[in-house]
């Protein structure tokens, strides 16, 4: 099939960007979306133009590196699918596709479709872990975990940190990402000792980054390639208020 692409090109974080139109010819329906971009890039290199920059690594929907707005949808039109797992059979001959980077103040563009998502790492660094030194753990079966709890914790832990939730949110809020980690650990017995301190630390870090506030649009859930539920946001809010009630304050607040 033949397609017309409108791709965001921006040479660096301080440069102005614009949409540039490219024709993508002879695209096979079996190609992944990123393979389609590979083909376009090979054509650009041949013509002596710089190829389009985009993050990617595993190309199996698990590393969370890839991500772009495809006709206004984070990761494209197919639900529960990352850009790398989207295949061109989702499009038809003659389609026009607009491809842009994640748009969020907290995710500045580095080049073309590549953005800086280090704010997510800082949220995890603020408290997204269980503080257990290597070697100090008891036998794994000494802490039984009810299967139902383990299963729900897993649903939350499946987040790949791609940033689609932020990109799709009209407010660029990071609640879905943050609540996924808060819930993963908060649902397990191992995560209990730090449960309330963790949530205040992570929320404080989230609020100190340039994310917006959550006003319950729930577009994040629809865009999330791992179909993380907004129920976790509600859960995080409950833990957060319980934590405040218990007098927990982020360490940085003194």
């Amino acid at each position: 099939m033949d397609l017309t692409l409108h791709v965001w090109r921006q040479s660096g974080s301080n440069a102005d960007g614009r949409l540039v139109t490219y024709e993508a010819k002879d695209i096979s329906p079996d190609m992944s979306f990123l393979e389609m971009l590979d083909v376009v890039n090979e054509g650009l290199i041949e013509k002596g133009e710089e190829p389009i920059t985009f993050d990617h690594d595993c190309r199996e929907g698990i590393c969370g590196a890839c991500g772009m707005m495809i006709n206004g949808n984070a990761h494209g039109p197919q639900g529960g699918t990352t850009a790398c797992q989207l295949h061109m059979r989702s499009f038809k001959d003659g389609d026009s596709i607009t491809i842009e980077p994640w748009r969020a103040a907290a995710f500045p563009v580095l080049k073309d479709l590549m953005v800086d998502r280090s704010a997510f790492d800082r949220i995890i660094q603020a408290g997204g872990y269980v503080s257990v030194n290597t070697g100090s753990a008891p036998d794994a079966n000494e802490i039984p975990v009810p299967k139902a709890d383990a299963d729900v914790a897993f649903e939350a832990a499946a987040c790949i940190g791609c940033g689609a939730c932020v990109a799709q949110c009209p407010n660029s809020a990071a609640q879905l990402f943050t609540s996924a980690k808060v819930s993963h650990l908060g649902l397990l017995p191992q995560g209990q000792p730090e449960r309330y301190q963790r949530v205040v630390e992570m929320v404080a870090q989230m609020e100190s980054e340039s994310f917006g506030s959550c006003t319950n649009h729930r577009e994040c859930e629809a865009a999330c390639p791992k179909e993380i539920s907004t129920d976790f946001i509600a859960r995080m809010n409950r833990d957060y208020f319980a934590a405040l009630f218990k007098g927990k304050r982020p360490a940085s607040a003194g």
């Binding site: 269980v130 753990a137 008891p138 794994a140 039984p144 299967k147 914790a153 993963h184 191992q190």
Partner: peptide, 17 residues
């Protein structure tokens, strides 16, 4: 042991093991 203590959500049986 280490990974379970970190909260890695390994598959469990109904008894929690």
């Amino acid at each position: 042991d280490q990974c379970a203590a970190q909260g890695v959500p390994f598959a469990r049986e109904y008894g929690g093991m």
